[in-house]
Amino acid sequence: MTTRDVTIEVKQGAQASPVAKCVQLASQFESKIYVEYDTKKVNAKSIMGMMALGIVPGQTVKVSADGVDEGQAIDSIEKYLGSK
C-alpha cells in the first residue's frame, strides 16, 4: 500500500467536472484507491463518495492505493489534484 498527502489545487466550480475527471482517472487503475479527509475515507472511483468529501482548493487529503499499479495510480491522482 502506498499513501501520500496531497494539497488540492485543482479548481472546483459549480459543476462536478473536476470530481468526475478524478473518478475517471482513478477508474483507469486496477488498484483500490481511497481519498481521506478529516474522518471520511471514500473510494476514489465513486463519484458520490468523492462529492461527499466536499474538498476545496487549499485542503490537504490523504490518497492511498493498494494493488499492482499503486505507484502509478498515486502519481496520477496527485498530479491531477495538485495541478493548478
Rank of each mutant, 00 (worst) to 15 (best):
Q15W: 09
A44S: 10
N43M: 06
M51I: 05
G82T: 04
I55A: 11
K32S: 12
T3L: 05
M1H: 15
A44V: 10
S27D: 07
S27Y: 09
V42C: 00
M51D: 01
C22Y: 12
C22A: 15
M50S: 03
T7P: 03
A65L: 06
G67D: 13
T2Q: 15
V61E: 00
D69H: 06
S76T: 09
K21R: 04
D66R: 08
A20N: 09
A16C: 12
Y34Q: 11
N43H: 08
S27P: 03
K11W: 05
V61Q: 00
G54K: 08
N43Q: 03
S17T: 06
A65V: 04
D75S: 11
I55Y: 07
D75G: 04
D38M: 02
M1D: 13
E9K: 15
F29E: 07
K11Q: 08
A44F: 11
S31L: 11
T39D: 01
V35S: 02
V35F: 10
V35N: 08
A52G: 12
A26Q: 01
M1I: 07
G58M: 11
I47E: 00
Q15Y: 14
S76G: 06
E70S: 09
V56R: 09
E36N: 10
G13R: 04
M48C: 00
E36I: 08
K40E: 07
N43K: 03
Q24T: 10
P57M: 05
E9G: 08
I47M: 05
S83V: 10
S46M: 14
Q28I: 12
Y80K: 09
S31H: 06
G82S: 15
E36V: 09
A16M: 09
A20L: 13
P18M: 06
A16F: 03
G58R: 13
V10E: 03
S64D: 10
A20C: 04
G13L: 04
K41D: 05
Y80F: 14
F29G: 14
F29M: 15
G71E: 11
P57D: 06
V68Y: 13
D5A: 12
A20G: 05
T39N: 01
F29I: 13
K84W: 11
V6I: 14
Q12S: 13
Q59H: 03
T39I: 00
A16I: 15
E36L: 03
Q72G: 03
A73M: 05
Q12Y: 10
L25S: 06
D5G: 05
T39L: 06
M1E: 14
Y37I: 04
A73L: 14
E9D: 14
Q59I: 02
S17H: 05
T39F: 02
G49K: 06
L25Q: 08
V56N: 05
Q72A: 12
K21Q: 07
G54V: 12
T3N: 02
K79C: 02
K32V: 07
R4H: 14
V23T: 08
G13I: 02
D75M: 13
L53T: 05
S17Y: 01
A14S: 08
V42L: 09
M48R: 00
